[in-house]
Simulated scan of single mutants.
Amino acid sequence: MRGDLIRILSTVEEKANELKLDGYNPDVVVVGKQAYDFIKEQVREEFGGEEDVIELSGLKVRVLEELEGDAVVIDSKALGLGLGGAKRFKVVL
């Protein structure tokens, strides 16, 4: 449904903005497999096609099965240094 896709995109942008306010530069959304499948289905319902989702709100998408129904917006450079730079949220309830 369109409302679910809007909610997800809004949440990604909200978490990215929170990171920016904290001085980070978010560049990746890591999503669990369950969350990715849900997002992909929402995009296909809205736009059609069979393409994979490679970007959300301008951030690269990576799948990490262990996150299941959650997603994390991260600044990959800061995260790699152990400085924080991540905001997690629930995609699938």
Rank of each mutant, 00 (worst) to 15 (best):
V73M: 02
S57Q: 09
E51L: 11
E14C: 06
F38A: 08
E50R: 11
L19D: 01
D37N: 14
I39A: 00
A35K: 00
I39T: 02
E55C: 04
P26D: 02
K77W: 13
E46P: 00
L83S: 08
I74W: 01
A86P: 00
D70C: 10
I54W: 08
L81G: 14
T11R: 13
D75V: 00
G69R: 07
E46D: 12
E66V: 14
Q34G: 04
E41C: 11
Q42E: 09
V29Y: 01
E66M: 10
A35H: 01
E18L: 11
G32S: 09
S76K: 14
E14I: 11
T11Q: 11
I6M: 05
L81S: 15
E50Y: 13
D27N: 11
D52P: 06
L64H: 07
G84Y: 00
I54D: 13
F47T: 12
D75G: 01
Y36K: 00
Q42L: 10
A71W: 01
V12I: 12
R44N: 14
V53T: 00
Y24V: 03
E68M: 11
R44C: 07
E50D: 15
R62W: 05
A71P: 05
S57C: 10
K40I: 07
K77C: 11
R7I: 01
K90R: 15
A71T: 08
D70I: 02
K90I: 13
I8S: 00
V30K: 01
L56W: 02
E13P: 01
L81N: 09
V72I: 11
K15V: 03
I39M: 04
K87D: 02
P26L: 01
G84W: 10
G58Q: 14
D22H: 08
Q34Y: 07
E66I: 14
E65Y: 06
K40S: 05
V61A: 08
S76G: 13
E14A: 12
L81T: 03
V61G: 06
E51I: 03
R7E: 03
V31K: 02
G69T: 04
I6G: 06
L79C: 07
D37A: 15
E66C: 07
R62A: 11
V91D: 00
E68P: 04
V31R: 03
K90S: 14
D27R: 01
V91W: 03
G23Q: 14
R88K: 15
R7S: 02
K77E: 12
L79Q: 06
G23L: 12
E13M: 09
I39Y: 06
V72S: 11
I6N: 13
E66S: 14
E13T: 03
N25A: 09
L56R: 01
A78F: 01
L21D: 11
G82A: 11
I6F: 06
D37L: 07
L59I: 09
K87A: 15
V29M: 04
Q42S: 15
G69V: 12
R62P: 04
E51C: 05
F89M: 15
T11N: 08
R62Q: 10
S57P: 06
F89L: 07
Q42R: 15
G48C: 09
R44P: 05
N17A: 13
E51V: 04
N17F: 02
L67D: 00
